[in-house]
Amino acid sequence: MVLCGATASSAGPPERVVSINLCTDQLAIMLAAPGQLVSVSHIAADPRVSPQAAEAARFRLNYGQAEEVHAMAPDLVLAGPYTSRYTVGLLRRLGVEVRELPLADRLQDIPETISQMGAWLGRERAAEALIDDFNEGLAALTSETDLRPRAVLHYANNYTSGGGTLANELLNLAGFINIAAEEGLRGGGTLPMERIVMLAPDLVISGQRYPGESRAEAVLDHPAMIALRERRVGGVSDADWVCGTPNVLRALARLVALRAEVR
């Protein structure tokens, strides 16, 4: 098994690739040759978090468990930095080649992520084409603006994104000022509802709702937030910017449209 994996990776492009992370799923679906990608994670088929749910449903779905993945006899397993250490370790002990793709948390890192994935899959040409498309798409959505409305991202449990995040970069690029970053929040974190209300943003941007009830999401319907949202509210699907892949252009397009509405 060990030999088998080693030969395949040195001899040519991998022939049986299994992806067990939503973000590697996205890039693998975009870049893999027909038949090369055997399985993607079951999360990739969930339309609430995956922008390519329809495409993903064509592949065999996995739950990211070592035994299950090993049984698919892959010569390459794609994982992300948040994939369970135990799963990655166990797969390697079983002689499976596992590669972990660092996630892009800046727009400028996305092309490099694409070309890394292209190199692993032996699909350098496809990767170059995808990078060109991404750069073109990005340029088409970027425009100068004088008016910069103040926006805040508001998710379940008062979660928001501050400076140094991909979401912050996209907000700025779309012409918004992110008040969470303005408040000095770095990375993801929470901003108490009281503070959000006091900062009086022009726009409150939320994700989509999940089925079933949770107290975490109840904050989105709190009377104080509803009063604040009378000013203006917008939604961007979580699926479009959860991973640093070319899919973030969909989120950017949505943000640019929201900015145009705010005036």
């Binding site: 379940a156 949770s214 999401e217």
Partner: peptide, 19 residues
């Protein structure tokens, strides 16, 4: 089916008045 619900076991057992 709600991804946040399971994390709220603590809330129901320990209580909170936030928000």
């Amino acid at each position: 089916p709600n991804p946040f619900a399971a994390a709220e076991i603590v809330f129901w057992m320990m209580g909170s008045l936030a928000d």
